[in-house]
Write a protein that binds this DNA or RNA. Sequence first.
DNA 1: CCTGAAAGCTCTACAGC
DNA 2: GCTGTAGAGCTTTCAGG
Lengths: 196, 196
Amino acid sequence: MTELDDTDTEILQLLMEDARRSYKEIGEEVGLSAPSVSNRVERLEELGVIRGFTLDLDRSVLATGDEVVLEIDARPGSGDEVAETLREFDFVEHVVRAIDPRIVAYGHMDDRELRHLFEEALDPDSLEDYAIRKVAESSWQPNVDGADLALECAECGKPVHEGGVTVEMDDRRYHMCCTSCESLFRERYEELKEAA
Amino acid sequence: MTELDDTDTEILQLLMEDARRSYKEIGEEVGLSAPSVSNRVERLEELGVIRGFTLDLDRSVLATGDEVVLEIDARPGSGDEVAETLREFDFVEHVVRAIDPRIVAYGHMDDRELRHLFEEALDPDSLEDYAIRKVAESSWQPNVDGADLALECAECGKPVHEGGVTVEMDDRRYHMCCTSCESLFRERYEELKEAA
DNA sequence: CCTGAAAGCTCTACAGC
DNA sequence: GCTGTAGAGCTTTCAGG
């Protein structure tokens, strides 16, 4: 029930190509009626697989400063704070936090915005080191690779099949493959929460 | 004509939030009729500002390996080749090429895929250095910052106002602020093409 | 560059299997 | 979980300003 089948994958692929495509058209493509497609899309949204429908914008055509990658090493313990600060700015489009001190961010910003970011917004004491690199070219390939498109158990990592459990905690959905993983996950979750 | 006004920005913002929103609803929001919104969206597509309508997928919920950032320093002259190779793989979702030797890539890949990438696909001679980092957390904030949302002249960089020129070359659209920038751009383009 | 009306499609219940 | 149907609602074209 929690598992995605080939039809779900096809639907995701068709919607990635054009999110405004009609459910009727998608239905014809995958061999289902429009209402069935609609139901499946709704389910995919509830599962949290589809976070939303959005635009693929060509930002290079829009004049909002240069395309830039930031590579930042935060001081131990400051990673969250740095990532948080970066996310506050509209011109920062991606923030990727690696497990080390490293944070990689990407966005369109001009010199003024960069100066503001590093000289005022970010606490110098929370940065170990950083590099600002202008981007020559960037590409994004949205892709849904059919083969391994199944949900992953939040506790043990195995794929979730029939009989899986879905739990909603603090507005986020988690999927588990069985009830024992569910209770382990709940425990772990509570501990994490108390620690924070 | 080539310029974007505040209403265009609002429309872009609303569509970024939900690309399946109806044109009627958007029209009510921005104070236009549905047909006008439809026309503007069409124009934004023709201008190349909207590349398409797509999904925001939560890939972390899909079992396709770990979320990974790759930081690669290509040897001088090999940047294009390395970026090309990275893009060939479905599991590589973003490729950002900085002006230096540095290439940053992001995607979901397991150990097997990583090994294949670095041991077989990429020529070791074209790499100076690289780091593979697992991602703890990542976020993406699609954003359209109203203030400077105007098209930028492909030749001189100034905003394109009324009287701008749009040129289509090899399936890509370029915007210029005036006819002199247009001829300069055409020259430059031909040279670049011959060089390649 | 806009609107309003009208025709044609699309979506979404809902009943039934 | 799927289909067909039917009413509501949306998109799009077109005439007109």
